[in-house]
Amino acid sequence: MNERLQEEFPIEWEDDHFVTRREFFRFLTLASGGLALGTVAVAAYSKIPKGQRSFDPALICKVADLKPGTSLHFSFPRPSDLCLLICRKDGKYVAYSRRCTHLSCPVQYEVGDHVERLYCPCHNGAFSVDDGRVLQGPPPHPIPQLMLEQRGDEIWATGIKVGEEA
């Protein structure tokens, strides 16, 4: 019977290798070690302070171009990176990315008697103009803030502060 079985299903038994339970257990432990190492690596990477990223400075506008309570659209560092320069009610200049951190809708500078914020009309999200933190709505992260430099009567963009966790 066995001879007939081997004739009809010729398997090279000498070359075949069964995985024993011990080998499987060893392999499982090895894979467990690999996963632990991977988790530690991800945790270590997430703890690296991201800080800020510098780019080639770009001139945005002159100080006189913006009055308090107004804003200006510009692109930095690439043409596709939409940004917003804001001259706040108190005269300070801040700049943020225009892309909402929820689904990348362009945000607007909303200013009124009792309100001053970045507003996303798509899903009613809002960010603070102080530091870009989420004030309301579905955005999961603060909106990235740009680094500005005033050189004489010109305002230059010099980099981006990498966002912190919400």
Binding site: T29, A43, E165, A166
Partner: peptide
């Protein structure tokens, strides 16, 4: 969580994973 910018659970998760590996060993 790391990709979403939330890093609070990163270290506890890594510690737990190491503990499980130690148990397997």
């Amino acid at each position: 969580n790391m990709l979403a910018g939330r890093t609070a659970m990163a270290v506890p998760g890594a510690i737990a994973s190491l503990a499980l590996f130690a148990t397997n060993l």
